[in-house]
Amino acid sequence: MLIVMLIPVILMVMFGFAISTEVNNINIAVVAPERTGAVKDVVGRIAHNDYFTFYGYIDQDQIDKKLRSGKVSVVAVFASNFDRRMEQISAGLPSKPVIQFIVDASNVNTASASIAYLQSILPGTASQQAMFETRMLFNPQMKSAYNFVPGIMGLIFILVCAIMTSVSIVREKEVGTMEVLLVSPVRPVKIVFAKMIPYFVISCVILVMILLLAHYLLDVPMSGGVWGIFSLSLLYLFLSLSLGLLISTVTKTQVAALLISAMVMLVPVLLLSGIIFPIENFPKFFELLSNIIPARWYIAAIRKMMIQGAALAAVWKEGTVLLGMTAVFIGVSLKKFNDKLE
């Protein structure tokens, strides 16, 4: 009952305030050989803009690392002799671009929004517009497939593993066969794992299918290495299975299991994991909330590995979080499962 009343409120608040396809809090770093007044002026404009968060000055050789790790989404590189060239431009003389924006385009939404904002921030005339150029990293053609493939993966595995597993275990309870199995010499843990295996196998097949489709049909690069993506996905599958187990221990009927899965998992996963709406834009509260959504971590890591070419080692933080969550889910549900026998 509470859930029924609560869900509309949460949805309203989330859609109304928290979630917008508008992009803000874009992290931007600056590379400037000379920090002259004119450079500082431009940097100041960007830093004071609400849409951007100024990350700081970095060195040329850090650009790739910062972008790849996701610390910044845009790097503005100022040309040397910036002041002199600006004067040329003001005087109407032809000049090569003086600022290069290197944009992380793995998230297409964020990337195109950043460019649009930057264009409006920088001072004005048409000739001055010519003074900067943009370079799309990781996804030069701005393909949206790059954006949604990791999202779909994050969603599908939770669906297949968590929902199907929980429903199938709860069905045994509902039908009464679970009782008979519990009185049999088979250990409860064995029963539960036996129920999980088919869904695990199905998910593995789906995983292979998705990876093949993504690579050969949608040309998603997977530059971080297929094995890394595969092993992180296996961890995520395992996490989803244990989540399903957890749900099955707290519900008695299939309907309840489905409802909990849908209300407590599907909606937040869709809205808060960055599948549809960029997390950077969330107000603090929802950003914090999104931290407890496993899919968020998985999707972020997969994006990095598939598109930004990060290796498995580079997503150790996401990996650790997922591992920790799995441990908690397994621990709690096994405890609950045994308590029930008691």
Binding site: G176, T177, E179, V180
Partner: peptide, 10 residues
């Protein structure tokens, strides 16, 4: 053990 509810696999 045979439970009150029918408990074979239909």
């Amino acid at each position: 053990y045979m439970s009150q509810r029918f408990s074979l696999y239909n």
